[in-house]
């Protein structure tokens, strides 16, 4: 499961690196221009969200393995967590969340752009759909992986 999660995570990074030209914080320094014809097509808009949810369900299931009864809870929990981050980009929550971020985040890698994440990020219902789809697909996928163990 961890190997699969790593592969999926790498795919998500490739989407950002190629289709989006690395214009995100974690690829700072990657200077390639976004592909004129996106390699992942329109899927690339929502694939990272889908993969992120799937990856962390797989990692969590791997950590808690072999407790199959927890799988629905794991899928549900990650669905909620990912949705909360997405919903945090809706006005006016974005501004309120940004205003609530502590000052000590400034200067700390990644944390320093938490404010930007909420304010600059755009809420997209299709991302919620991607998260839900990932949570649904993850359920049988984890089952299959556990049976493979």
């Amino acid at each position: 499961m961890l190997l699969l999660a790593t592969l999926l995570l790498a795919t998500g990074i490739v989407v950002y690196a190629l289709d989006r030209g690395g214009g995100v914080y974690f690829l700072y320094g990657w200077t390639a221009a976004p592909a004129k014809t996106p390699i992942f097509g329109p899927l690339g808009d929502h694939l990272p969200t889908f993969l992120h949810t799937l990856v962390f369900i797989l990692i969590t299931a791997a950590v808690l393995r072999p407790w199959p009864r927890l799988i629905p809870g794991i899928c549900g929990a990650w669905f909620v967590i990912e949705c909360l981050f997405e919903l945090g980009q809706i006005t006016p929550f974005d501004g309120q969340l940004a205003a609530a971020m502590p000052a000590w985040f400034e200067g700390i890698p990644v944390l320093e752009i938490t404010t930007d994440y909420f304010i600059r990020g755009t809420y997209d219902p299709l991302d919620i759909l991607s998260i839900g789809l990932a949570a649904v697909i993850a359920y049988p996928l984890v089952h299959v992986c556990l049976q493979g163990d």
């Binding site: 214009g23 914080y25 990020g121």
Partner: peptide, 23 residues
Amino acid sequence: RVLWLIPVAVLAALSIVATGGSG
């Protein structure tokens, strides 16, 4: 092993935020 969920959750949150705009 449940304790491993703490860094997993932190990693998840940070990776979500890190996909934000260029800092």
